[in-house]
């Protein structure tokens, strides 16, 4: 069970908002880079966020570059999951690969600062502040397995190959 506060963002938060190119020189120093996470969307976010909190966004979160630093710094900053109406393709894969859950759901019912509880196994989100419940879209089986192992590297170390049911 994950529990924390919601930090609400709008549509189209790009990887440039999350980790801008001007901080390229910090890319080999993730803890330092994480101090700037989402800086161009909300300059105070990095100082306010606490371990376990959620990033809650609207449409097309994580669009733009393939930089995996984007989900990584969100994870390093302590965020337990990203909730959004939709997520850009590369960001989605990257997040799962680094073990950051991404939940596709209708985020309109979540306001900035709401207390949330997420049950990844049951696929349920409870908004403790306004006492509503949400469910999220199931992700493909292969991604669930990768997430279960804590990311793609531990998955490959264990399984040595991708296992995909024959279609």
């Amino acid at each position: 069970m994950l529990k924390g506060r919601a930090f609400k963002f709008g549509d189209g938060i790009s990887t440039d908002h999350i980790v801008p190119g001007r901080l390229l020189h910090l890319r080999s120093n993730l803890p330092e880079l994480a101090k700037h996470v989402l800086e161009d969307a909300d300059p105070t976010f990095a100082q306010r966020v606490k371990k376990g909190d959620f990033v809650v966004a609207s449409k097309n979160f994580g669009l733009g570059s393939s930089r995996e630093h984007a989900p990584l710094v969100i994870k390093v900053a302590g965020i337990s999951a990203v909730l959004a109406k939709s997520v850009a393709r590369i960001f989605f894969r990257n997040a799962i690969n680094v073990g950051l859950p991404v939940l596709i759901c209708d985020t309109d019912n979540i306001d900035d600062g709401d207390e949330l509880e997420v049950d990844l196994k049951l696929g349920k989100i409870s908004n403790l502040t306004n006492t509503t419940k949400l469910s999220f879209t199931q992700i493909p089986d292969i991604m669930l397995r990768i997430l279960d192992e804590g990311g793609l590297i531990p998955y490959i170390k264990k399984h040595k190959d991708f296992t995909v049911p024959k279609t």
Partner: peptide, 8 residues
């Protein structure tokens, strides 16, 4: 793709 997908 991102770094980990490419690494694998």
């Amino acid at each position: 793709m991102g770094s980990t997908d490419i690494a694998v």
